[in-house]
């Protein structure tokens, strides 16, 4: 018997709206039984996926990390490569110039900072070569 009642569903995940429910299925709603706390079929029981919920830069960062780029903003420390004039260490940037810091020796107490320009490989005072490579912004 489908008797429609105006029933206040007191579930914490509803918006306390008055809903149409059938008597046959919701007899427990009239009792003090914990049944009334159970969620309705159309309610979320978990929050959306973090990437679905995210937007803007936050989402692009998450997607870049998912795509296998652990350093989407090119700010983390990287191991130097061979560093010769023919095989300079490539430094990614989305701009035509950026600042690079070279840890010349393993125990160096300081970092040698320098500007690096597009198309102009640069040699640090320690003899290590760097070259700017273009990496599209995220």
């Amino acid at each position: 018997m489908a008797v429609f009642l105006r029933n206040l569903v007191l579930s914490p995940s509803t918006k306390y709206l008055v809903k149409n429910v059938t008597l046959a299925k919701n007899v427990a709603s009239f009792s003090t039984c914990a049944q009334r706390w159970n969620k309705a079929a159309d309610e979320l029981d978990e929050l959306p996926d973090p990437i679905d919920l995210a937007t803007g830069l936050e989402k692009r960062e998450l997607l870049a990390e998912l795509a296998g780029d652990p350093d989407p903003f090119n700010v983390k420390i990287r191991k130097r490569g061979a560093g010769t004039r023919d095989q300079p260490t490539e430094v990614p940037s989305a701009f035509e110039a950026r600042i690079v810091g070279c840890i010349c020796e393993e125990e160096s107490p300081s970092i040698s900072w320098m500007w690096l320009y597009e198309g102009k490989p640069k040699r640090c005072a320690c003899g290590h070569w760097f070259k700017l490579t273009y990496k599209a912004p995220i």
Binding site: S13, P50, L53
Partner: peptide
């Protein structure tokens, strides 16, 4: 905010 689905389990 939680009811408004502003959060995710990582953020």
């Amino acid at each position: 905010r939680m009811k408004n689905i502003d959060f995710s389990f990582t953020h």
